[in-house]
Amino acid sequence: MHVPDGFLDATTSLATGAVAVAGVGLALRGARKELDDRTAPMAGLVATFVFSTQMLNFPVAGGTSGHLLGGALAAILVGPWTAVLCVSVVLIVQALLFADGGITALGTNISLMAIVGVLAGWLVFRAIQAVLPKKLALVAPVAVVAAFVSVPVTALAFVGLYGVGGTAPIALDTLLTAMLGWHTLIGIGEAVITGLVVGSVIAVRPDLVYGARRVLKSRELEIRTAEGAAA
C-alpha cells in the first residue's frame, strides 16, 4: 500500500509528515519501556522479517496482489511502540534505496502503515484479549483477527487522506468501496501470515512474544496458587 509521490497534495503531505515525526518521536520514548537487552535483538529481527515479507506479494484476485503490512505482527511480537519504529525503518529504507513509496509521501506511508496499521492491530488485539480467557493457545488466533482488521482500517485511513488532499477529482464513495473491497481480501493474507508467524514463535519461545506477556504472567500466578495450596 505504498503511496507514491503525487497522489496527495503538498499540504496533506506536510501534515502527514508532522504526524509521522510526532508518532516516531513518541515511539522512541515509549519503546524504552518495551526494549531491554533480551528484546532489542527481537526488534531488529522483526523489522528485517517485515521487510523481507513485504517483498512477497501474494496474488489476490483479478490481477491484483497484496503484501504483508506487518503492523499488527510487529506490535504483537515486540510491542506497539517498538513496532512503530520497526515498520518506520522498513518504510524509510524502501523509499530511499528501493524507490518504493514516494519520498514526499514518506510521512504519509509512515502515518498509514507504521502508525495506523500498528495502532489498529494492537488495539484490536488487546481488546479481544481482554475479554477472552488468558490462554497461550489463544494468542495466535487473536493475532489473526487483529491483523485482518488492521488492513482495511489502514485502507480506510488512506481514503480519508485522499478525501482531504487527493490530487485528482475522484468520487470518494467509489474509492472507498474499491479500497475496502480489495484490502479486505488482502487482509486475509495478512491474517494468515501473522497467524503462522505468531503461532510459530509461541510454539518455540512464547516468552519472546510481547502480546503473550499478560497470559504468561497469569499462568505463573496460577502455579504459585497451586503450590501455596499444597504447602
Partner: peptide, 16 residues
C-alpha cells in the same frame, strides 16, 4: 540494511 538500522535503533533506545 534494515537489520542494522532497526537493531541499532533498538539497542540505542533500550533500557540498560
Amino acid at each position: 540494511v534494515v537489520l542494522v538500522l532497526a537493531g541499532g535503533l533498538a539497542f540505542a533506545v533500550r533500557r540498560r
